[in-house]
């Protein structure tokens, strides 16, 4: 009896599958695979992609890789098996995600990378990239100007096993390290976390009460650092963030945060969805890499910006 039930269940499953394959007038399905949903920036990226896909008349589903390439691989296999027609993809790791994209290519499902790139020029149909490294080069230049090329500063790193952490840090240092009078007195990790950043900053301030600037790998850490600085009566210290989150945009307009980098997740996600739409329409010649500009946001241009983008 039990075996019979199982057989019926299997039959229903297969019937369901074959039904799926024969669709033609059903809406096409788009899988959105993002590295993590534990960070508002990526939530916004995924939601915008889903919204745009819906506007264009497609079904979509968001998959959360939880910063884990193995889980990401499962998502790709599931998406390919359940008949998705395109994948809008935010890779977890430049090297580790390549094989997943190649799997999709083999199955002739187009993949459009969003924000982060993969180390392959052939696997993805197109890569819409926002380059953390060059954004931090720009932030580094502003940092040098704001501190007038001298002083002591602190760097708060993100999660030390995350490649974004180091892209941002390296971009920043490629500029700032050329100025010998700018001295980094502490470089600590606060895991992209607001609470951790506040605690680490409180401790650093005990060891180095005389600092002039803080560079943070994301806005959440910048907000935490600001709270520690304000509590210690050191609101004159210039704090730099990265992301362009709602809290950060408000903090820049209030003069609490010196600057942040705006990466335009809305533009990236909408572009990726639009590319998928054009692909379904028959277009095949997409740019392999499409860089989306990153803007530095500070007091001088803050009135043009809102959370995660420009005011409309």
């Amino acid at each position: 009896m039990k075996q019979f039930k199982l057989l019926v269940l299997l039959l229903i499953l297969f019937a369901g599958c074959s039904g799926n394959n024969q669709k033609s007038d059903e809406p096409k399905k788009v899988a959105i695979v993002v590295s993590t949903l534990n960070n508002p920036w990526f939530v916004f990226l995924a939601e915008t992609a889903a919204k745009k896909a819906k506007e264009l008349g497609y079904e979509s589903k968001i998959f959360d890789s939880q910063n884990n390439t193995a889980l990401e691989s499962d998502h790709f296999e599931n998406a390919l098996a359940s008949g998705y027609d395109a994948i809008l993809f935010n890779p977890t790791d430049a090297a580790g995600s390549v094989s997943n994209v190649e799997k999709a290519k083999k199955a002739e499902i187009p993949v459009f990378c969003m924000d982060r790139e993969i180390n392959s020029r052939t696997a993805a149909t197109s890569q819409i990239l926002s380059d953390s490294y060059s954004a931090c080069v720009e932030l580094g230049k502003l940092f040098v100007d704001t501190l007038q090329k001298k002083g002591q500063y602190v760097e708060l790193l993100g999660i030390v096993s995350d490649n974004n952490t180091w892209n941002r840090s390296k971009g920043f240092h490629s500029v700032v390290d050329n100025f010998p009078n700018l001295k980094m007195v502490a470089q600590q990790s606060a895991d992209f976390d607001r609470n951790k950043a506040m605690e680490v900053m409180e401790s650093i301030l005990q060891a180095h009460p005389q600092i002039d600037g803080v560079f943070c790998g994301n806005d959440a850490m910048a907000m935490g650092a600001i709270q520690a600085l304000v509590a210690a009566g050191k609101s004159h210290v210039k704090v730099f963030g990265f992301d362009g989150s709602e809290d950060a945009v408000i903090a820049v307009s209030e003069g609490k945060l010196a600057a942040t980098a705006m990466q335009y997740p809305k533009d990236i996600a909408e572009k990726a969805a639009t590319f998928a739409h054009e692909y379904f329409g028959g277009k095949r010649d997409f740019p392999q890499k499409l860089p989306i500009a990153v803007d530095v946001v500070n007091k001088s241009n803050i009135d043009q910006f809102t959370a995660y983008g420009k005011k409309e």
Binding site: V160, A186, Q188, S189, E199, S203, Q206, A207
Partner: peptide, 15 residues
């Protein structure tokens, strides 16, 4: 320990 390792600016890896 958390506080002390930061005060001494020990690398996050070693922490």
């Amino acid at each position: 320990l958390n506080n002390g390792l930061v005060l001494l600016d020990v690398s996050p890896f070693w922490q």
